[in-house]
Amino acid sequence: MKKYHVSTTINGEPVEFLCEPQQTLLDVLRDTLNLTGSKEGCASGDCGACTVIVDGRMVCSCLMLGVEAEGRTVTTVEGIATGDTLHPVQQKFLEHAALQCGFCTPGFIVAAKALLDENPNPTEEEARYWLAGNLCRCTGYDKIIRAVLDAASEMRREAAE
């Protein structure tokens, strides 16, 4: 099968890869580029564990082909922190213990970052609605929502300084 040459920007770096047409962006990220933070849960767009940001909009990387990433800018969970400094969303997930098994966490982190980039001051309802495409089967959503809202206030504080 013919392989396609794809040029993208991933987590701020220009990245080129070869892929077959049927490989999803998630397959390419995990298997070709060794960015295994994004997880495969349902492969049908229900669980959000594979959430990445493409050209500023969060999407399920399991429902997008690798070839469709041509010319796009992709941010994965690996690109959220700044060097050794965790993103406030990551830090607050730790502080609030907003994870147990951790499988859904990368998707939640990416989706929450996308939310706060768009809306720095969400209500609880807005946060829950925004994160409706991400499923957690162990921690429960309460701690996750608390962590996201706390991260939002932390980021607003930082922005005000």
């Binding site: 767009g45 959000g48 969060m58 999407v59 429902l63 997008m64 609605y129 495409g133």
Partner: peptide
């Protein structure tokens, strides 16, 4: 439209 899928799926 707000009831169609999730943010992730509505973006594509």
């Amino acid at each position: 439209l707000p009831f169609v899928g999730h943010f992730q799926t509505r973006n594509r």
